[in-house]
Nucleic acid binder design. Sequence first.
DNA 1: CTGTTAGCGCTTTCAT
DNA 2: ATGAAAGCGCTAACAG
Lengths: 347, 347
Amino acid sequence: MMTIKDIAGLAGVTPMTVSNVLRNRGRVGELTRQRVMEVVEAHGYRPNLTARALVERRAPTLALMLGCITNPFYPEFTLQANNAARRHGRFLLVCNTDYEPDSGTRFMADVAGSLSDGILVANTGELRVEELKAIQASGTPVVVSVWEFPDEPPEGIPCVAFDSRKAGRIATEHLLELGHTRIGALVASAKKGIHGGRYQGYCDAMRAAKVKHVLADAHFGEDSYQGGYDAAIALLTTRPDLTALFVSNDLPALGVLNAAASLGRSVPGDLSVVSITNIELTGQSRPALTTVSIPTAEMAEASVDLLIRLIGQPGAHVPMVMTSDPVLIRRASTAPLQASPAPSRSR
Amino acid sequence: MMTIKDIAGLAGVTPMTVSNVLRNRGRVGELTRQRVMEVVEAHGYRPNLTARALVERRAPTLALMLGCITNPFYPEFTLQANNAARRHGRFLLVCNTDYEPDSGTRFMADVAGSLSDGILVANTGELRVEELKAIQASGTPVVVSVWEFPDEPPEGIPCVAFDSRKAGRIATEHLLELGHTRIGALVASAKKGIHGGRYQGYCDAMRAAKVKHVLADAHFGEDSYQGGYDAAIALLTTRPDLTALFVSNDLPALGVLNAAASLGRSVPGDLSVVSITNIELTGQSRPALTTVSIPTAEMAEASVDLLIRLIGQPGAHVPMVMTSDPVLIRRASTAPLQASPAPSRSR
DNA sequence: CTGTTAGCGCTTTCAT
DNA sequence: ATGAAAGCGCTAACAG
């Protein structure tokens, strides 16, 4: 491997000059510059980023901690975060925790303070705040993104949030406006879990509309396609009179669509379904899913920008960053309540 | 930040001893070991991986070059590659090229030789072999994975391949066995492009079964959901007598399913659809997609293992690695040819 | 505008 | 079993 010294020798200058040419730093004569560049290109020399990182005391990578890259929300988030990181000249280290906090701990311990200059945590509802604070205290900035509870930011940790409660409200109001009143809630977490805010939004809307809803109308379960499928089967079997379903996340909602078909209920004819997030897949299902989009790209960008800023000014106090409001994306899975009181159960 | 020197001072030993304790190298007295570990843990000391990498002349990361993390095949591949990398104590740097070879070039130039010890290229059909060879020649091992043409491995570059032609044949034979003969081919690349092998497999099977097929039965297009949708509309409008479709990739096949519904053709009743890859989504569509699985996990693992081996013995000559045969995954999008000669076109 | 000196945090090599 | 010296490839700080 070529070193900067080799290039310097060949170009008849000192390593320092080569370094300056390569980084457009300091003042270098145009002639010298060209000579150096010629040698650099002739030999395809690339500076050793590890050595540079060591002496500059900054790493060229940002670590992205996420639950599972296979959950379709994350690739979309990752893509945007990656682009933002590249804009700042950084690479993204993808740390897949398999939803195990311990795995995340190990990653962060290895990565913080040397390999990565900052850690971007995509919230999975399994945050260990104390741990993050410890890492932060040790000098590596941490930003929590996709935070669902703007009213209760994680104490002492910079975070980028969105209004999940409003998202839940918008989704539910849409159903109400279509005339539905027997609206089930299918929540892809525990009641006070990560989708608790979305569920609160559902409750808000129902209450505001003075529509009676009981806990039996809600189901709390897994955030997965299968979880949505199973929950829908369970809920619609117990409560066949429901004419609409509020689902807290897109992926389970896709499962709900399939479950409805299995139960012989056509969507949106016999059953309206609305969810939250607006992942790409929602435009590709049949029927296409009506959903409430959250600002994924905006959050990814804001998080990276914030992280970069924190790397620049360690210890800066940063208030929570709030992102744009969720917006309803009307597609084909919701429709006005039919005149017929009970849905057909043909099969 | 704590350094190894600080720990050494606190433990009353030299940095070397601390280093040895931390890496289980050299001989260290049990008593000393414990004392060092106590100090390390008390202060939460973590060695600086950048400094270690510099002196050891090895990087802790592997770079994964991929087209677009948003294409659902890649997250699945990435997950497996990541797990394999972790098993070898490496991190994965995800390099999203947006399907632009130039973007890949920039990534590799920055990463090779310092940040990453090796480069894993997930084949996108846009390979610049000469470039990869140059990188390899400069000392950073390169492995091409998901190679579709075992008969023509990229010259001089280690690669992990699967039998794409056989996959195409298996898929098509399945349709033939179900009694179909008017089988269209929907290929998500140019004829000689990345899915050329899969298409060859289709041709092989058709020829072997002595079923006449003309070029008009084939459509060459984009590898995307929308590409599949559009192509299916086009092909089925031109050739409404087709009773089955061979689609070269899952993502477009999902689009085909939707297109069929738009055209009022039920799958599998009026139209059978089979594709290749077996991404997770194929089990979640309605109908669930019959497909031919390729050994994604096996390829990801084999590629990482190969890369690690090459890092260990630079310049080793490595033959192409062939992975397991594709296998038919029967699901719900294919059915025996109906008695009725022309499909119903009810709407 | 260009060169010199020192050192980033760690490990290798050799000595004790 | 432990320590001392040297240096990985690069850049910050200061000289000239």
